[in-house]
Simulated scan of single mutants.
Amino acid sequence: MPILKRMSAALILTVGAAMPAMADDPATCGTVHLSDPGWTDITATNGVAAVVLSALGYTPDIATLSVPVGYEALKNGQTDVFLGNWMPAQQKFRDDLDATGDIEELVQNLEGAKFTLAVNKAGADAGVADFADLDAQKDAFEGKIYGIEPGAPANQSIQAMIEADEFGLGDWELVESGEQAMLAQVGRNQDAGTPTVFLAWAPHPMNEAIEITYLSGGDKQFGPDFGGATVHTLARKEWAASCPNAAKLFGQLTFDIGMENVLMGKILDDGMGAQNAAKEWIAANPEAVKPWLDGVTTLEGEPAEDALMAAVAE
């Protein structure tokens, strides 16, 4: 090769090596819209997503929306990603979204979850271990089942059970409130020794704070294995196609029960903000985040892992 050609080739290689890989996402992908139904587990995972997105140069925009409104927002293009598709409890909403053809599942982000009715220690001591045991103890339970926010699919399942008089519960009352209000009431009842039946789930630090007995017999309402569930990440197809770098991140962003219990404990018990809890966890578990960032760059095309670890070290 002539000297001039060799020099030119070397110059091209040197310049090319010095230039960062170009990000796949245009500037229009800079803001990522998510929703949070007010559940601490999704608040925690949204916190993780927000920390990673911010470190990579994106701006997370998280709206607090009830489950039905959140699904409508995803369907109507007001949000881009939802980390809280609990299945099979949200099958009805999922079917509605799938029918539009505009939504895709990016990943199953959690397995080993469960979600069904449970009783506190006083309820278990009263002999309640199954849905069918409840009605015989109606007076002790004051005929109340404590649920979460209005419109939640789990509440709908409970209300349908009451209206159908299943297990003799036709004259019971569903008390709807947010997660924190429900757990505060359960805590007060526990301190008073009052039998209480309520929606319970894992992951959640309630499983450490309250002596919980998950009830059998609710397979029809919540699914087998005490409402055994998986959680999925959904995104708008148009967004995922337009923003492949961010979509790749969300397609690799997975969690486990232990991690979420820790994060939720920091939020609920220690009063930490979700993003501060996520930063602390990521800084302490650098190896765990590597799979999330495989093949992902910052919005500017720089290495994602370096940017994230620098951000959580601040």
Results as ranks from 00 to 15, higher is better:
Ser8Arg: 14
Ala9Ile: 12
Ala10His: 10
Ala10Val: 03
Leu13Ser: 09
Gly16Lys: 03
Pro20Lys: 00
Ala21Lys: 08
Ala21His: 08
Ala21Asn: 04
Ala21Trp: 05
Met22Asn: 02
Ala23Val: 03
Ala27Asn: 08
Gly30Gln: 13
Thr31Trp: 01
Leu34Ala: 02
Leu34Ser: 01
Ser35Tyr: 10
Thr40Ala: 03
Ala44Gln: 06
Ala44His: 06
Thr45His: 02
Val51Ala: 00
Val51Pro: 00
Ala55Asp: 04
Leu56Ile: 05
Tyr58Ile: 08
Pro60Cys: 06
Asp61His: 13
Ala63Ser: 15
Ser66Arg: 06
Pro68Lys: 01
Val69Cys: 00
Ala73Pro: 05
Leu74Gln: 01
Leu74Met: 02
Leu74Ser: 02
Asn76Thr: 13
Gln78Gly: 06
Gln78Ser: 10
Leu83Asn: 06
Pro88Tyr: 06
Lys92Gln: 15
Lys92Cys: 02
Phe93Arg: 11
Arg94Ile: 15
Asp98Tyr: 14
Thr100Arg: 02
Gly101Asp: 10
Asn109Cys: 04
Leu110Thr: 13
Glu111Val: 13
Lys114Arg: 15
Thr116Asp: 01
Leu117Val: 09
Leu117Asp: 04
Leu117Thr: 11
Ala118Asn: 05
Ala118Glu: 10
Ala126Glu: 10
Gly127Met: 07
Val128Arg: 02
Ala129Ser: 15
Ala129His: 15
Ala129Tyr: 12
Phe131Gln: 01
Asp135Arg: 13
Ala136Glu: 15
Asp139Tyr: 07
Phe141Trp: 07
Lys144Val: 12
Gly147Ala: 08
Glu149Pro: 04
Pro150His: 09
Gly151Arg: 05
Gly151Asn: 06
Ala154Leu: 13
Ala154His: 10
Ile158Pro: 00
Ala160Leu: 07
Ile162Val: 12
Asp165Glu: 10
Glu166Trp: 14
Gly178Ser: 12
Ala181Thr: 15
Met182Tyr: 04
Ala184Trp: 07
Val186Trp: 00
Gly187Leu: 02
Gly187Phe: 02
Asp191Tyr: 07
Ala192Phe: 05
Thr196Gln: 02
Val197Asn: 01
Phe198Glu: 06
Phe198Trp: 04
Leu199Cys: 06
Ala202Phe: 07
Pro203Val: 03
Pro203Leu: 05
Pro205Met: 09
Asn207Ile: 09
Glu208Gly: 13
Ala209Asp: 10
Glu211Asn: 15
Ile212Tyr: 03
Ile212Trp: 02
Ser216Ile: 11
Gly218Asp: 05
Asp219Trp: 09
Phe222Met: 09
Pro224Trp: 07
Gly227Leu: 01
Glu238Trp: 05
Glu238Ile: 12
Ala241Ile: 07
Ala247Cys: 06
Lys248Ala: 06
Thr254Leu: 02
Ile257Tyr: 03
Ile257His: 04
Val262Cys: 00
Gly271Leu: 04
Met272Trp: 12
Gly273His: 09
Gly273Cys: 05
Ala278Gln: 03
Glu280Leu: 08
Ala283Tyr: 11
Asn285Val: 02
Glu287Ile: 03
Ala288Asp: 11
Lys290Arg: 13
Trp292Gly: 01
Trp292Ala: 00
Asp294Glu: 15
Gly295Ile: 09
Gly301Ser: 03
Glu305Ala: 11
Ala307Ile: 03
